[in-house]
């Protein structure tokens, strides 16, 4: 039938109580401008809500924005939940306040792309695209 078309679908979510989402919204815009379909789930998402949204929206990537310092436990738990829920093929990326010494730990957990504070839009878009090369 029709020719297949591929569009990267990204869920941008903010887990937990941290209430600053300007960064998440701006990243969502940058990804839109790079031709991606961005589902923005808003603030204060529980991990259950993030998993359910990722299932119902069939996203290719979950992008978390975390400023609270809780990126290690959150990512560890979410990676486990993604496996339990059949989302093994969905990539996880995280941005926000991420100290450089934590990057190897996140990579080891299986976080596919990490964008610490100071990452440019160009780097974020390129990093996201690279996941699907």
């Amino acid at each position: 039938m029709m020719k297949t078309t591929n569009k990267i679908r990204v869920l941008i979510a903010k887990p937990g109580l941290d209430g600053h989402d300007k960064g998440a919204k701006i990243v969502a815009l940058a990804l839109r401008d790079a031709g991606m379909e961005v589902i923005y789930s808003g603030l204060h998402q529980t991990l259950d809500q993030i998993i359910e949204t990722a299932i119902q929206e069939t996203v290719d990537v979950i992008g978390l924005s975390i400023m609270s310092g809780a990126h290690l436990p959150i990512c560890e738990k979410l990676v486990a939940m993604m496996k339990e829920n059949g989302l093994d093929d969905v990539r996880l990326s995280v941005g926000g306040v991420i100290p450089y010494q934590d990057i190897p730990k996140l990579e080891k957990m299986g976080v596919a792309a990490i964008f610490p504070g100071g990452s440019s839009f160009k780097e974020i878009v390129a990093g996201m695209n690279q996941l699907f090369d």
């Binding site: 839109r32 401008d33 031709g35 991606m36 379909e37 589902i39 923005y40 789930s41 949204t53 929206e57």
Partner: peptide
């Protein structure tokens, strides 16, 4: 312009 979209209704 970009072919991208922000899907924000579900918020």
């Amino acid at each position: 312009f970009s072919g991208g979209a922000i899907l924000g209704d579900r918020i």
